[in-house]
């Protein structure tokens, strides 16, 4: 499975790509496979402040809804409008066109609390991600 080196990862299977204090967030390849066909995304609300680990968006498969948590504390600064008409992008391109929202991160140094690609890969392999 593909876990890009330039991203940081959560134990709840989100990734974040931080540039300055802006971080794009999505779900990992592992997560999109677990969720299976994404048929609906409840988009994050712009301007909404979220604490680290709190639900910011919801991704739904045919049978179930999955909360997507903010990897770091911040304020939602953008969301992926394309998912409204094409939620399947989350499956097709989880690290690209399937991104979920952008976060204006309160404390960029907190990035170090998240897993690196290697750590996340090990976390998945250990089976602890279930």
């Amino acid at each position: 499975m593909n876990f890009p080196e330039n991203l940081r990862y959560t134990r709840t299977h989100e990734w974040i790509a931080l540039t300055g204090n802006k971080g794009k967030v999505g779900v990992t390849e592992y997560a999109q496979k677990e969720i299976s066909d994404v048929v609906f995304v409840e988009l994050a609300r712009k301007g909404h402040a979220v604490a680290q680990g709190k639900a910011a968006s919801v991704v739904e498969s045919v049978k179930a809804a999955f909360d997507i948590y903010a990897p770091l504390a911040g304020v939602i600064s953008d969301f992926n409008q394309a998912l409204e008409s094409n939620p399947g992008l989350v499956n097709q391109d989880p690290y690209g066109a399937g991104w979920l929202f952008e976060l204006e991160v309160t404390d960029p140094s907190a990035l170090n609390t998240l897993m690196t690609a290697a750590q996340y890969a090990e976390f998945i392999q250990s089976g602890a991600g279930h």
Partner: peptide, 8 residues
């Protein structure tokens, strides 16, 4: 079995 390939 919930699904084999996908529900869709």
């Amino acid at each position: 079995p919930l699904y084999y390939s996908s529900v869709i």
